[in-house]
Amino acid sequence: VLYEQIGDEFEKQGYFLVDADENILEEQKGVIRSNCIDCLDRTNVTQNYMAQKSLNLQLQRIGVFDSTECVSNFEDDYTKFKRIWAEQGDEISLQYAGTYALKGDLVRYGKQTVSGAIKDGMSALSRYYLNNFQDGVRQDALDLISGRYTVGTNSPSQIQPIGSQPSFLPVASALLIGGVTVTSFTIHQAGRNTQQYLASALWAGVTAGVVAMIKANGRHLCSRPRLCHLI
């Protein structure tokens, strides 16, 4: 459906082509920009499809394929193409998000698989952790390298020594997990006597208090960039 909407414009943009004598036969007149608001994963699936279309046009132009053939007709070559594209998507994703790209099985196999769905779920959980508790320093590095943050000789350093500020995340996490576990256990045993009811209420209160503390102090628990303010 997407290609039907942009196919004519896509083909008009063309590609760069030279002959054996280095004469320019055709120049590329534009690019396709595809991006989504929250991730690079579905974008990679779309770009893979557009790259396949472009490859078919180029190979037909130079006579490798006739007008009815495409790379998907040649299983070995098509498998290599999909693997290369999926692997480059993984490499970009590792730099950008810290995990392999999601939807990689759509690029490799053309469909969502059970193992792929499980892998995507694990990657999503890993991204949540990395985004909240690890990526602050990475963003600082990008801001510094890209020039978004400029070091001033007369301005105080925005970077504090590692370990100068205590992290309450491990303690909060342990209390939360412990509270949920004990609350669940005591609720299961609550029908036996009044003491179990009181224990359930106590641990439920502790768990609720920890949740409230995490919610109120989330900005301090997370790893936030220190050089430039978040937009």
Score class of each variant (00 low, 15 high):
residue 7 G to R: 08
residue 9 E to W: 06
residue 13 Q to P: 00
residue 13 Q to W: 09
residue 14 G to Q: 01
residue 28 Q to D: 08
residue 36 C to H: 09
residue 40 L to F: 07
residue 43 T to Y: 02
residue 43 T to R: 01
residue 47 Q to F: 06
residue 52 Q to Y: 07
residue 59 L to W: 07
residue 64 V to Y: 04
residue 71 V to S: 03
residue 71 V to R: 08
residue 72 S to H: 00
residue 74 F to S: 10
residue 74 F to M: 15
residue 87 E to T: 14
residue 90 D to G: 04
residue 91 E to H: 15
residue 104 G to R: 14
residue 111 K to L: 12
residue 113 T to L: 12
residue 125 L to A: 03
residue 128 Y to T: 07
residue 132 N to A: 09
residue 134 Q to V: 04
residue 141 A to Q: 08
residue 142 L to C: 10
residue 143 D to H: 14
residue 144 L to T: 11
residue 147 G to I: 13
residue 152 G to Y: 01
residue 154 N to S: 02
residue 154 N to M: 01
residue 156 P to N: 03
residue 159 I to V: 10
residue 160 Q to I: 00
residue 160 Q to F: 03
residue 165 Q to R: 12
residue 166 P to Y: 06
residue 172 A to G: 06
residue 174 A to I: 12
residue 175 L to Q: 08
residue 177 I to Q: 04
residue 178 G to N: 01
residue 180 V to W: 04
residue 180 V to K: 05
residue 182 V to R: 08
residue 183 T to Q: 02
residue 187 I to H: 00
residue 190 A to V: 00
residue 199 A to L: 13
residue 199 A to T: 04
residue 200 S to H: 07
residue 200 S to T: 11
residue 201 A to T: 02
residue 205 G to K: 03
residue 208 A to N: 10
residue 214 I to Q: 05
residue 218 G to Q: 14
residue 225 P to H: 12
residue 226 R to T: 15
residue 226 R to C: 14
residue 226 R to W: 05
